[in-house]
């Protein structure tokens, strides 16, 4: 019987590789590494309508896996991770997902072969071929590799599981057979990789497809999105569920506006990603950036700004009618200790 374990954790690949992390420890390092969205791995961030984790689970489900167990680090904010329990999918929240996975694996005596994936990278992998390779090699553990090195995807036989030994320890000390992944791989180690995944998805360089209707070549707009007729949408572009694009806006050059966002009057979004539940204010020029709530990461200059003024960018939670469209544009950079100014220049 083939089952799958998907770990959605905060640890970095370096921690997994080095053995710093074990079933009994939790990671502190990676919280800093995911500063764009505090305590949220990039694999959980919505990309063209669905998170990478959600897409991974869909892929595993299609490969006739009997049972899929997803172990999510309890510190991860539940932000559209695309992980919903169903008939053959169980989802567990735990402060130590590797440890919990080990316990479940030990209790499940029917398990024959286990596919173990750490939801960190976007990998286009032929699971059937991967399984076939594992069987042919005759080793207890097979690991996927690409040209840059190991990926956090393993196939594990029941025989490799020793009493009292943790799943991560087994994977770390094993000498696995090496399965070469020939397909597209994006390791999602930096927000820059997230942006690259969007561009590659919109330009068909990978199989990641936008979750919306292609209303004209290269323009995907969700049915529930509202795009003002006076806005200009230039392909390739994606506008997600429930998002609003106001008049005189220009969305261009592989930009994506994820779900429940608003881009206000006259703003230009060029080569940028607006992550879900974000508001982008009036008359701005957003380029080469990722916006997440009130955080702005400019990839060209590698600068992260926390914008204090909600009229510029902010989490999109305030109802439209509550906003004061005539309030002065006040913003700042430099950290959360700075608050918006109360008045303009004298």
């Amino acid at each position: 019987m083939l089952s799958a374990i998907v770990i959605v954790g905060l640890e970095t690949r370096r921690e997994v590789e080095s053995g710093v992390l074990s079933e009994n420890t939790t990671s502190e390092f990676s919280i800093e590494a995911t500063q764009l969205q505090q305590s949220t791995p990039l694999a959980c961030v919505e990309v063209l309508g669905r998170s990478v984790v959600g897409r991974v689970i869909d892929e595993v489900r299609r490969a006739d896996v009997n049972a899929i167990s997803v172990f999510v680090d309890a510190r991860i904010a539940p932000r559209h991770p695309g992980i919903e329990p169903s008939a053959n999918i169980t989802v567990s929240n735990s402060e130590n997902p590797w440890g919990t996975a080990t316990q479940q694996l030990a209790a499940d005596v029917e398990t024959g072969t286990v596919l173990v994936m750490r939801a960190s990278a976007y990998v286009e992998l032929d699971l059937v071929d991967f399984l076939q390779f594992h069987r042919e090699q005759g080793k207890a553990v097979t690991r996927a590799f690409d040209h840059e090195g190991p990926l956090d995807i393993w196939i594990l036989d029941r025989s490799a599981i020793a009493d009292g030994e943790g799943l991560l320890t087994i994977l770390q000390r094993s000498k696995p057979a090496r399965y070469s992944v020939g397909g597209y791989v994006n390791r999602l180690e930096h927000p820059r990789d997230l942006r690259r995944l969007v561009v590659d998805g919109l330009t068909s360089r990978c199989r990641l497809r936008p979750q919306a209707s292609e209303i004209r070549p290269g323009v995907w707009i969700d049915e529930s999105a509202q795009v003002n007729p006076d806005a200009r949408i230039v392909a390739p572009t994606y506008i997600g569920h429930g998002s609003r694009i106001e008049a005189q806006c220009l969305i261009t050059r592989c930009s994506n506006v994820e779900s429940n966002c608003q881009v206000d009057y006259g703003t230009v979004v060029e080569d940028s990603s607006i992550l879900s539940n974000s508001y982008v204010g009036i008359g701005l020029d957003l380029s080469h950036s990722i916006v997440d709530g009130n955080n702005l990461l400019n990839l060209e200059r590698n600068v992260t700004l926390e914008i204090a003024d909600p009229c510029v960018i902010r989490p999109n939670r305030v109802a439209r009618k509550e906003r004061n469209r005539h309030s002065p544009v006040i913003f700042g950079f430099g950290g959360s200790q700075f608050r918006p100014a109360e008045e303009g220049p004298s």
Partner: peptide, 12 residues
């Protein structure tokens, strides 16, 4: 600074 440049560009 890069931060100032980003803000000035954002504000057009």
């Amino acid at each position: 600074s890069p931060e100032s440049e980003v803000v000035l560009e954002l504000m057009r």
